[in-house]
Design a protein around this nucleic acid. Structure first.
Lengths: 219, 219
DNA sequence: TTTAAAACATGATAAAAATCATGTTTATTG
DNA sequence: CAATAAACATGATTTTTATCATGTTTTAAA
């Protein structure tokens, strides 16, 4: 994963002992989507790009990170896998802080701090994914997806299909990021296709699979 | 800001002493954009919606948060102001943890942990803003904005106007979330308007104000 | 340096979505 | 309950943007 070249030692402002940096060539990946998370990185010198590729139409560049910042804090998410990739935009010095070292210096972390960190990283993961969806999915696709996630979020009525929510069309539109009329049209279309049923304000899911296929069709 | 009703006490899993929750009615704001940050909140019971209004075309719903989660961790960002609003989707019990209490239970936090938390919150703020931009700005507007932020990120050549970057058109497109051809067209148009100059790969900013006006026209 | 490939620009067309307009249904309130 | 307002649906039109096609320029490689 990481290839050592020109190991050099630095002492970042937030850390007492010295850490060793590795030199990454321009364009080299620091970590890639689905890699197993083993620690976190600190950009000592250079510039990094965070992006998401995973099966979408095109690569989505999520943000640019300058030196002095951490990347890959997903690490805190209990060592699962990365949901994004990071690569250098120029030759860079990157410190790696492995999980063991991290936790050794976090011994005093209370359950409270841990809970907050855990959530912050989960939030970032969530919001980063959202950027990609917004940028790359159509209103139809996003609407299908929002319906399914609202079902999870709100839960269902006793019938097991009617979403227990009370969002207005314009609130759905504000979630999807479209005009209210577009949501109306898309929902009418879903209804016509018998994927959902609309009774007054209530939305009932009739064909979860079709909605899900549409929602994930460009991923 | 917060109106007390039915104060009740809970002991969240991550906290030893008891905390007091307040009852918020459905649709009530927990905090609003530009409010001064004085602590953070924990959803003991209920559901919350995070959105961003600030001068954009329409309200952008950023995410839905269920009970058991923190909201308003922007607090950690050195007590500035909220960049989003939070309101209840149903009657909810919300705990408030003020800054003093927070820090009292964080005494042991090292500079390292603090640095990470600081950055995580900054990242969230950044990415949340990005969702709103993606959802509500046109390709033209987003391109103008990306040019200006790349200028900040990369810095400029000696002339003080040429962006010191090496992104290809398709990388700009992947940032903006559009087709490569669209970026080409927009850049050609900016060039024709004499807002920028394109010399080989180099982009020179000629009229920062016009670009900025366009970039922020829907905000 | 010549050649091939990649990156870029631009026209034509199609598709997606916003906007405008209007009628209908559903809620709210006096 | 009637009156009014808000929410919703839907048609027509326009705008924005993607896609397809093709020519040009730049870059990299033989």
């Amino acid at each position: 994963m990481r290839k050592a070249t020109n190991k050099l030692h630095v002492k970042p402002p937030w850390f007492n002992p010295e850490l060793s940096c590795l030199l990454y060539k321009k364009g080299q990946f620091i970590f890639s989507e689905n890699n197993r998370v083993e620690g976190l990185f600190w950009i000592c010198k250079g510039k990094v790009l965070i992006s998401k590729t995973g099966g979408l139409k095109r690569e989505q560049i999520i943000r640019f990170v300058n030196e002095g910042n951490f990347i890959g804090c997903h690490f805190l998410l209990h060592s699962t896998t990365y949901s994004v990739s990071a690569k250098t935009l120029e030759d860079s010095h990157i410190c790696f802080i492995d999980g063991y070292t991290f936790f050794k210096f976090q011994e005093h972390l209370t359950g409270f701090s841990m809970a907050i960190m855990y959530q912050l990283t989960a939030d970032i993961k969530d919001v980063e994914l959202n950027i990609t969806k917004m940028a790359q999915k159509s209103v139809r696709e996003r609407t299908a997806e929002v319906l399914l996630s609202l079902e999870t979020f709100y839960g269902m009525k006793e019938d097991g299909n009617t979403i227990n929510m009370s969002l207005k069309r314009n609130e759905i539109a504000n979630t999807v990021g479209s005009a209210t009329e577009s949501v109306s049209r898309v929902l009418s279309d879903f209804k016509e296709k018998k994927w959902i049923d609309i009774d007054a304000k209530e939305i009932k899911i009739l064909n979860r699979k079709q909605l899900s296929d549409l929602a994930h069709s460009s991923m």
